Computed example of a mutant assay.
Amino acid sequence: MTDRVVVAGAVLDGGRLLAARRSAPPALAGRWELPGGKLEPGETAPEALVRELREELGVEIEPGERIPGEWPLAPGYVLHVWTARLLSGEPRPLQDHDELRWLARRELDSVDWLDQDRPAVSRAARHLPAAPSA
């Protein structure tokens, strides 16, 4: 049996990456992730990402490229991450999150990412402008 895919969006806007703090389940609460959710039967990964971010954040996004790699989650689930461009709406924590933050490249280490999100975040960082030299 193949693993069920969970899609997450590395939402990029204005040279920043969107981070979402989990409010549930209790084991994950307080840690940060790239927002997304489970692929439903008959959906493509980009379609699932558009639906999940609409449900969770109240925004419309345009999926971009898949970030190479996949990361195991709970048994039977695997994480696939896509870049995404914000088209409309202001992200709000509607489901499963209690706080959102836009992070510049130099701020990515300022939140406690879920372990499975760390490799995708570091790959997504390549899409962000380098920090200005001091």
Rank of each mutant, 00 (worst) to 15 (best):
V50H: 02
D109G: 15
V59T: 01
V11C: 08
G64D: 08
P41H: 02
R22I: 03
A125Y: 08
A19W: 05
V7H: 04
A48E: 06
E43N: 08
P41T: 01
S23E: 15
E33M: 15
H80I: 14
A104Y: 09
E47A: 15
G76M: 02
T2P: 15
L18Q: 05
L49M: 09
A48L: 03
P35D: 09
S23G: 08
E90D: 15
A74G: 06
P119V: 09
P75R: 02
A24G: 02
L18Y: 03
P132N: 13
S122T: 14
L34R: 02
L79Q: 13
G37I: 05
W71C: 06
A8C: 12
A124G: 09
H97A: 03
G15N: 07
L53M: 11
D98K: 01
V111W: 00
P26R: 06
E90V: 05
A120E: 11
V11A: 12
V81K: 01
R54T: 02
Q116S: 12
G37N: 11
A134P: 13
P75C: 12
A131E: 15
W82Q: 10
W32I: 01
V78Y: 02
A104F: 02
T44Y: 06
A124L: 03
R16S: 10
W102I: 08
P72R: 14
L87W: 00
E62C: 13
A27E: 12
P26N: 13
P41L: 04
P68Q: 11
V5G: 00
E65V: 09
Y77L: 14
L12S: 06
P68E: 15
A124D: 13
P75H: 03
L57T: 01
R21N: 10
